Computed example of a mutant assay.
Amino acid sequence: MELTELSQIAPFQGIKEEELIAFLFGSPNCLKHFDSDDIIARQGNLCKGLYILASGVVRAGMINEEGKELTIEEIEAPCLLASAFIFATESRFPVNIEAIKPCKVFIISKERFLEFMHLNPLVMQNFLKDISDRSVFLSKKLNEFALQNLKTRLLNYLDTHPTIHNQQEVAQKLGVTRPSLARALSELINEGKIKK
């Protein structure tokens, strides 16, 4: 974990490294370690503070009562986790956050983070920008799933990931079953829109 890297993420851009160190390691904050496949946060649990992914990679995903899973995104450190939900009226994690690789996560209380933002207006401005950017990302995701059919979503996915190595993984990212994905791939191949 490099503190220099943490100082480059919102909301800490532009503040001095010694201020960041004092903030991160001050009481009652904690630094937790998670192994691969550990659950960092469960969908629906209270979000009691600012979660900062200091090292590692996590998967943010949703699961319904039938066990259907949807990967929202894979997040690489350094990054804030669920930043848009910290100060919500109902501040609950909207997703499960699972470690893909071993992770270190700072957990900062809401009160301590709020106090830090009041003392550092630049931090507050950067944080507001970060949660606004997250809202834009989430609205694009919603558009993908609510307004686009599976073949369109698959073509968009293939624009940024030209090869599919694991159909189950891609199906999970697109929020569909593996057989549905295989059927859509076959149709796109038959239509000449993609090559086998």
Rank of each mutant, 00 (worst) to 15 (best):
I100S: 00
T160P: 06
S139I: 03
L138K: 00
K110R: 11
N156W: 04
D130S: 10
I108L: 02
I100Y: 02
K110S: 09
M124H: 15
L142T: 00
N143T: 15
F87P: 07
P121Q: 09
S109R: 00
E98P: 07
V136T: 05
Y157T: 03
E98F: 06
I107H: 06
R92G: 03
V123R: 04
P162V: 04
E73R: 14
H161P: 05
L138I: 00
E76N: 15
N126D: 05
S132G: 14
F116D: 03
L114V: 04
L122I: 15
A77C: 03
F127R: 02
I131T: 04
S132Q: 10
E144T: 09
K129E: 15
N120V: 01
S83L: 05
C79Y: 14
I107A: 10
F116I: 10
H161E: 06
T71N: 02
C103A: 05
I75C: 01
I86Q: 01
L154S: 01
E76W: 11
S83Q: 13
N126M: 13
R112V: 09
F106Q: 08
K101V: 14
F145Q: 00
F127I: 12
I131Q: 04
L128F: 09
L122P: 07
L154H: 01
F127N: 08
R112W: 10
K151A: 12
N143C: 14
M124R: 04
L158A: 07
P121E: 06
D133L: 00
S83A: 12
L158I: 02
R92E: 06
E90Y: 14
R92K: 15
L150T: 11
A77F: 14
L80D: 01
V123K: 12
L80N: 00
V136W: 11
S135D: 02
A77L: 03
A88K: 12
L81T: 03
F93I: 03
Q148M: 13
L114T: 11
Q148P: 11
K101L: 14
A84L: 11
L155I: 07
T160F: 12
M117R: 04
T160Q: 15
F93G: 06
D130Y: 10
L122K: 13
A88I: 06
N120Y: 11
